[in-house]
Write a protein that binds this DNA or RNA. Structure first.
Lengths: 225, 225
DNA sequence: TAATATTATGACCACCGGTCAGAAGCGAGC
DNA sequence: GCTCGCTTCTGACCGGTGGTCATAATATTA
């Protein structure tokens, strides 16, 4: 997940020791990351303490801070992992040949379903928007997240642009703007859908709401023949 | 802010003592609430401590807990106040006669602008969606919020229903569903717009994004003549 | 004024994220 | 194989926070 890993197989006696060290460091980092992910997903971000993560990773609390500068940075690293998974799925859809509208719907629903199946992950990404999180985070991480987001939106924007060329989407629709709006509509509804104890709609019922939201947005962007 | 206030001006010697006590209690509660609101709006929720609120309200920290069971409950009480302001604005728009589409846009943008002008308020409402907040909150407060939300959405749903009657909105559009989607689209984008330090778009630029989002949604719901 | 009930106080507690001085581990040179 | 020096690890410790509770102050009643 996002770490060099430097698996170079050049073993002259000199550099090999350094390389093994690096590998061990990366492995420990991964161990911590996995432990943290399990706990965050199980108990949520605020209820997971650094002490617990340290115990689960079988290191001391101090060691945590040798690999991650703060609790916030730790979970942002986990976010990035999730981003890469979604990125893979969208790229796959993007590569298929087929009806443009169905490809769009598929992207939208794939994103939604991933977030519904990984609620804790979604909650974490949302928490990241909060002012507090951003104040305490290394600028590099924020930058990284923005880049990933832009990348994901790119798949949608490209599709919309294709739709314009094909005469399906209106000329005055800006592809990237549409992508942003669709993305934020999805997350807005997800905020609701991710709440377990809600009196109203339950899990599956929300899928229809997402479908309808997509239909409205698309309908507003399509060329009316 | 949802407290009785009991300003009754009936002063028979017997009940007056009891009433005065009640009034004093309510007044204290209000004082605390005002102090907390000022601080929350100024410094944000996480950076405001109970000690500070106590100092600002000129009471001790312990007293805070005689009036509010937790920090969470304190600020949710503030949320309810904000809801009533929005409710008033939407009701006003609802009562005007005029173009249905413009009324809808006006409701959407009024909500958005209120949230942009009261970012702290908006952040609080969003935080309220989190699992943690819900676990620690009195059921009555959650119930209250749901009721208010349903009320706000009612204005939009009624307008959509009117649009259907007028033949502007498609027959198969469910008014309440549309209202929910529009609401969540707004909050989804607001999540982004409310971040100060964002590299990309700045404050005002978002207004256009909201307008476009509204246009897409509406376009998808309108009867295509 | 004395007895009682209500309300306010702030020292105190548990807990958490984060730090740091020192311990432990490990490779290199003699 | 022993020591020296560097890297990695540790856990006691710190500052600060939300929340509690025995006690004090105040108001009410008799």
């Amino acid at each position: 997940m996002a770490q060099p890993q430097t698996k170079k197989a050049e073993p002259p006696s000199d550099s090999i020791t350094l390389t093994r060290r690096e590998r061990e460091k990366a492995a420990r980092r991964d161990t911590i990351l996995e432990a943290a992910k399990d706990l965050f997903y199980q108990k949520g971000f605020p209820d997971t303490t650094m002490e617990e993560i340290a115990a689960a990773a079988e290191v001391s609390k101090g060691t945590l801070y040798l690999y991650f500068s703060s609790k916030d940075e730790l979970y942002v690293s986990i976010i990035l992992e999730g981003f890469q998974i979604i990125d893979g799925k969208l790229e796959e859809i993007s590569a298929t040949k087929g009806d443009l509208v169905e490809k769009g719907r598929s992207m939208f629903m794939t994103f939604v379903e991933f977030c519904l199946e990984n609620r804790e992950y979604f909650r974490i990404t949302q928490y990241f928007l909060s002012e507090t999180a951003r104040r305490n985070l290394p600028a590099a991480l924020i930058e990284g997240l923005s880049t990933y987001t832009t990348g994901l939106l790119g798949y949608v924007a490209d599709l919309v642009a294709e739709g314009k060329t094909a005469g399906i989407i209106r000329d005055d629709v800006d592809p990237y703007t549409f992508a942003v709006i669709a993305w934020r509509t999805a997350t807005g509804i997800l905020d609701l859908a991710v709440i377990e104890d809600e009196t109203g709609l339950a899990g599956g019922e929300y899928l229809d709401l997402f479908e309808q939201a997509f239909d409205f947005l698309l309908g507003g962007a399509m060329e009316r023949s």
